[in-house]
Design a protein around this nucleic acid. Structure first.
Ligand SMILES: [Mn+2]
Ligand SMILES: [Mn+2]
Ligand SMILES: [Mn+2]
Ligand SMILES: [Mn+2]
Lengths: 147, 147
DNA sequence: CTCAAAGTGTAGCCAAGGCTACATTGTGTA
DNA sequence: TACACAATGTAGCCTTGGCTACACTTTGAG
């Protein structure tokens, strides 16, 4: 033991809540890759007609090797359907997630823009923030976006 | 080649910007652990008088093993000073970072609260969002926080 | 039709950050 | 003071997600 006499100083943020918040953030990080991939696949499918490994690599800023391995995991988890040398398709589950992500992304960007943030910085910040916005906060952001 | 005739459909979000945003988000993730650790060490030092491995583990929601290995990295990177079986101290660099993080954390929480988000959800969301807020956005959030 | 180049796949490396199981050290209490 | 137990440290496992280097497949230009 180390501080048996100290009167258990009142915690500013109780450790339990703090720990739970950080656990939640880590959970969000775990789904973040999936979200960015399905969003990119949906965007590319819409604008290019199909999503290919090279397009994804360029768009995600990683090598095609990383894309390949990640797609294997996303297929295992049921978000995408991949066949060798073919274009990449979203499953119904993947499409649903993609649409949620596109929506969240748009809401966050619009909100930042309405605060006076430049297009470019809004895009950069949104790319990280979008994964950590709860439904409550998302609704509040939409509500407080001055068009 | 795969679509030589298609007129290179106008990209909604150009891949280059998209890729740069995602790279930035990944850079932020790399510093995220350091930020949460130094912030926790500063908080614990203030409220308890010192920061010990078990306290950090409880507060961060991980095992003491994870804390130990991470502290070794943070020491290597110059943020903390660790000696076996002793309390953990921030270096001047670490303390500066901790203060920035505490400030950013407070600004984000206050902003969310001012949007009507509950204390608990504000804490949870802020724990993730704080690492992806640029100086411009941080200033805008502070400016738009209705006290 | 051919074949070079683009696209795709894979082997194997690395670091971060989780974990369990077990060994070692420190210390307050009996 | 001894020693039980809390705290700390360490060995070794796993997954994710980066990478380079190299091999294989597809395809459109000539
Ligand atoms: Mn993103
Ligand atoms: Mn996005
Ligand atoms: Mn955080
Ligand atoms: Mn924080």
């Amino acid at each position: 033991m180390k501080k048996p006499l100290r009167p258990a100083a009142k915690a500013v943020r109780p450790s339990a809540l703090q720990a739970e918040s950080l656990r939640q953030t880590r959970r969000e990080h775990a789904s973040e890759t999936a979200e960015d991939y399905v969003e990119a696949i949906a965007d590319l499918s819409a604008s290019q007609g199909e999503a290919r490994v090279v397009d994804l690599a360029r768009r995600l800023g990683v090598t095609h090797v990383t894309v390949n391995r990640t797609l294997a995991r996303l297929q295992r988890e049921g978000f995408v359907s991949v066949q060798p040398y073919r274009a990449i398709f979203l499953t119904p589950t993947g499409l649903k997630l993609a649409e949620e992500c596109q929506h969240r992304h748009r809401v966050v960007v619009a909100f930042l823009r309405s605060l006076g943030i430049s297009e470019k910085i809004a895009e950069i910040d949104a790319e990280g923030i979008e994964h950590h916005v709860s439904p409550e906060t998302l609704a509040a952001l939409a509500r407080h976006t001055h068009r």
